[in-house]
Design a protein around this nucleic acid. Structure first.
Length: 865
RNA sequence: GCGGAUGUGGUGGAAUUGGUAGACACGCACGCUUGAGGGGCGUGUGGCUUUGCUGUGCGAGUUCGAGUCUCGCCAUCCGCACCA
């Protein structure tokens, strides 16, 4: 590693030294402070902010490096760039640390933030730290509460009884994502129960249609994220149809196939449907009760898991089919979910497979109303439901109409008939549910309302915000929210009437904190308002957002929702918060697993050439998996930075895989990047020593060597620029840097101004990727200002033009050789050169040329007869 | 079951969008430098029965020419899943 010293010419590349030096200098000079000069075009580059666990992992490094390259390139290109960082700092881990280790969540969190900030700063990320936010800080959550009150005032926040996941051991409510696939609590391991509780919701369903249709405005998002959101919102169009029970109650149902109404032979209600009790006859009371109890005991997962056998019970009563006045039985079954549609369905067994299975099992009538063409079927002989096309039969006014959802087909005709006759109407239904935001936890934003016996729910007035978290709390991990036990905090006078009242003790889902942080960065230190609207309207939307695919739905959907609500409150004028989105792939590392025992073996204990379990001798499975402690395959960024420096780590991560693909960590490739930076160091250092203050003004005439080098230089400028502007292709951008470096190493004109131009260009192009080494080398070249303020190299397209090109000679489409020809040659000349070529002569001799295809600047293909 | 993505050397990955497949690296081999190791430098590296043939998951097709376009399969990964 000290070979450079032996020559005595230049100093050794010492990353830790120069990285610390330049990080300090840049911070002192405020190089990364957001410019206020609004004459420049703006660019907002953002990484999803982290949860402050205390330790930076490789996934973070990858995420932030990608965004940093984008930000640095834009700065060099003359944009004013906003590139902030902050902390998604509320959440369960802090509270668990308090329960397990007796540290206050606030103390634990702020310690972690300090630790992680220090780690981030060692990566050379160009953040404007003046705009740092932490969602657990009262300065921030004051405005989270204020936002909540905006929702409340707009009628978009409400309380409702809801069935939630209840952990009987920890005595607390859990979010869906905190219950594993077996229906057990992630913390206590207890089987989760369903329990009715009064909870806070945000009415995201009011925005379902816009959240769906505006996905079209996001061409800069990955297709699959848009599709996932589309699926999640789950719009289906159809009709609402009102059935009457014999007792006179209305029983509305939603259906996507209103055209099959004449084939409805029974109805099914969800076991939780409010009308079940009333509809159940005395004879059936016991059976219904038993079924309801069994269904209630099952978690959602159990209920949706047994896809095979249908179960259900008849209520004993009947409904009237509104289209033909037929009497049809009303059943209950758990394949009908209370949370979707109206919690009740009309069952058309001939044309819906679930209804068909149910009808067969309980011997219910099956009536065919769509006759597939050229295939006479009847309900009695069907072996499965027919959901496909055909002609309507047995359907009164619809008879003879072709079945389908198109214009003039059965569905449209049915909806028109329903509306004309007042039996129902066209309607859309969504899978999306309202957002349950209540959490019975301490370490979150208190919901800023007071419950008053006489005034009801009273919002805390703006001038009394924030409702701060009390600090004198006990964390036992048992019972309701720790806040509920603090009488002095709970009991307050009603802000409206002054009588004794009680604070809301639920805190908000932490996804709320992260649903608006990207707006706050535009005006992060505003004490008098959530933000200055003009500043948000100036900076937003985020031009490039980068984060993991795991947020494809929740965070990104919630943020879009918040943005639209705040827009409708007149606070901002944008429809969508994130113009372009990049979902970066996982960072994986080699993993060894013993297939016999199922145990993971630390790589340090395995011989990679012959992977065997050191204790049992079993051959091991070898594969790449996401880094994690339990698999012993994590690589600590700290170790990499210490050994190679941030520049090498950044270069490796950018080069190893395209950003959206999974990246396989490989120490040998990290070494490779370190070697490359060392080569660049020697190349530039040696040049700077030999040619202090070298001129870059070009002579009027260039030699061939100079022209070739200059073409390589400007090809690099072109390719790197394109790679980091369109679809980010940092891997090929880095390979272009390597090509330029190789071209300079091989160049035979080291004393030419062209060579000096090449050296300077290499350093500039390298700057966004490896900012420290580029800065150090730039200064060695004699520059006073920072390379990061030196401007992006200008492309000279004239330099790209070659005097000679390589012409491919093909015979019958097969390449048989190449020749060098003048670039200026026209089609006829190219054909002539090709005919005369040795390669063509060999194959053409004695044959007839039937056709010649000439592709200018590329190839000549001879088709022989 | 529904929807989506991906499939190229020993490995990670390129390919101007129909025009020399394997750029750039990693690894490996050989050579030079070095007391040795490391490092550095140089050369080579898809396969094969090597004047040539063959090759981008498999099989057809379009074309002068296909990794790229069309049709049909296979495999892997991801999301959703009794959604009426």
């Amino acid at each position: 590693m000290d070979s450079v010293n032996r020559s005595g010419a230049v100093s050794k590349y010492s990353p830790t030294e120069i990285e610390a030096k330049w990080q300090q200098t840049w911070a002192d000079q405020g190089l990364d402070t957001t410019p206020e000069d609004t004459t420049k075009p703006k660019f907002y580059a953002l990484s999803m902010f982290p949860y402050p666990s205390g330790n930076l992992h490789m996934g973070h490094v990858r995420n932030y490096t990608i965004t940093d390259v984008v930000a640095r390139v834009r700065r060099m290109q003359g944009y004013r760039v906003l590139h902030p960082m902050g902390w998604d700092a509320f959440g369960l881990p802090a509270e668990n640390a308090a329960i397990d280790r007796g540290i206050h969540p606030a103390k634990w969190t702020y310690q972690n933030i300090d630790q992680m900030r220090a780690q981030l700063q060692k990566l050379g990320l160009s953040y404007d730290w003046n705009r740092e936010v932490a969602t657990c800080s009262p300065d921030y959550y004051k405005w989270t509460q204020w936002s909540f009150l905006q929702f409340l005032e707009a009628g978009l926040a409400y309380q409702k009884e809801s069935a939630v996941n209840w952990d009987p051991i920890d005595q607390t409510v859990l979010a869906n994502e905190q219950v594993d696939s077996a229906g057990k609590s992630w913390r206590s391991g207890a089987k989760v129960e369903r329990k009715l509780l009064r909870q806070w919701f945000l009415k995201i369903t009011d925005y379902a249609d816009e959240l769906l249709s505006d996905l079209d405005q996001l061409p800069g998002w990955p297709e699959r994220v848009r599709l996932m959101q589309e699926n999640w919102i789950g719009k289906s169009t159809g009709a609402q149809v009102v059935f009457q029970t014999e007792s006179g109650d209305e029983l509305p149902v939603f259906t996507t196939r209103p055209d099959t109404l004449w084939g409805a032979t029974f109805m099914v209600l969800s076991p939780e449907h409010p009308l079940v009790e009333k509809l159940t006859t005395a004879d059936q009371a016991e059976a219904v009760k038993t079924y309801q109890t069994a269904a209630a005991a099952k978690s959602d997962i159990d209920r949706t898991d047994d896809t095979k056998e249908k179960t259900g019970v008849w209520t004993g009563s009947f409904a009237i089919n509104p289209v033909n006045d037929e009497q049809i039985p009303i059943w209950i079954a758990d394949y009908v979910l209370m949370g979707y549609g109206t919690g009740a369905i009309m069952a058309v067994p001939a044309h819906d497979q679930r209804d068909f299975e149910f009808a067969r099992k309980f011997s219910l009538a099956i009536k065919l109303v769509v006759q597939p063409e050229g295939d006479a079927r009847s309900g009695d002989t069907l072996t499965e439901a027919w959901p496909g096309d055909g002609v309507m039969v047995n359907s009164g006014p619809l008879d003879g109409i072709p079945a389908g959802k198109g214009d003039g087909q059965s569905v449209a005709a049915a909806i028109q008939w329903l509306e004309t006759n007042g039996k129902g109407k066209g309607e859309a239904n969504y899978r999306l549910r309202d957002w349950l935001i209540s959490r019975q936890r301490y370490w979150g934003v208190p919901i800023p309302v007071v419950h008053c016996p006489s005034c009801g729910i009273v919002p805390v007035p703006d001038d009394q915000l924030p409702v701060t978290l009390p600090e004198d709390v006990e964390f036992s991990g048992r019972g309701a929210s720790p806040l509920a036990k603090l009488d002095h905090w709970v009991n307050v006078p009603c802000p409206s009437c002054g009588e004794p009242a009680k604070r809301e003790t639920d805190t908000m889902d932490t996804f709320i904190d992260s649903s608006w942080y990207f707006l706050r960065y535009a005006d992060a230190n505003n004490e008098g308002a959530i933000f200055d609207s003009a500043k948000v309207n100036d900076w937003l939307p985020v031009d490039q957002y980068v984060g993991g695919i795991e947020h494809a739905i929740l965070h990104l959907l919630y943020s879009r929702f918040f943005t639209k609500v705040l827009r409708d409150r007149g606070l901002i004028n944008i429809d969508e918060p994130f113009k372009r989105l990049l979902t970066q792939g996982m960072v994986q590392a080699i993993t060894y697993k013993n297939p016999q025992t199922g145990k993971y073996i630390p790589p340090a204990e395995v011989n990679p050439d012959d992977p065997k379990d050191p204790s049992t001798g079993d051959p091991l499975e070898v594969f790449y998996e996401k880094m994690s402690k339990s698999k012993y395959n994590g690589v600590d960024p700290k170790d990499v930075l210490q050994k190679y420096g941030a520049d090498t780590a950044r270069m490796f991560i950018l080069f190893k895989a395209p950003p959206e693909k999974d990246l396989e960590w490989d120490d040998a490739d990290v070494e490779g990047q370190y070697r490359f930076l060392n080569r660049v160091w020697r190349l530039v250092s040696e040049f700077a020593t030999a040619h202090p203050n070298a001129a870059t003004a070009l002579p009027p005439e260039l030699s061939k060597a100079e022209k070739d080098l200059r073409r390589a230089i400007h090809t690099a400028i072109k390719e790197v620029s394109e790679d980091i502007e369109g679809d980010y292709q940092f891997n090929t951008a880095v390979s272009e840097l390597m090509k330029l470096s190789n071209a300079l190493s091989d160049a035979k004109c080291a004393d030419s101004p062209v060579y000096a131009e090449g050296i300077e260009t290499l350093v500039k192009l390298l700057a966004p990727f490896a900012p420290h080494i580029a800065e150090e080398l730039w200064r060695q070249l004699g520059h006073q200002e920072s390379v990061h303020q030196s401007g992006w190299p200008q492309l000279d397209t004239a330099a790209l033009v070659a005097d000679e090109i390589t012409l491919v000679i093909q015979i019958m489409g097969k390449t048989r050789g190449t020749i060098q020809v003048p670039a200026s040659a026209d089609k006829a000349a190219l054909e002539q050169y090709a005919r005369e070529s040795e390669a063509a002569q060999r194959y053409i001799e004695g044959k007839t040329i039937r056709k010649v295809i000439v592709v200018p600047k590329k190839l000549v293909n001879f088709v022989l007869g």
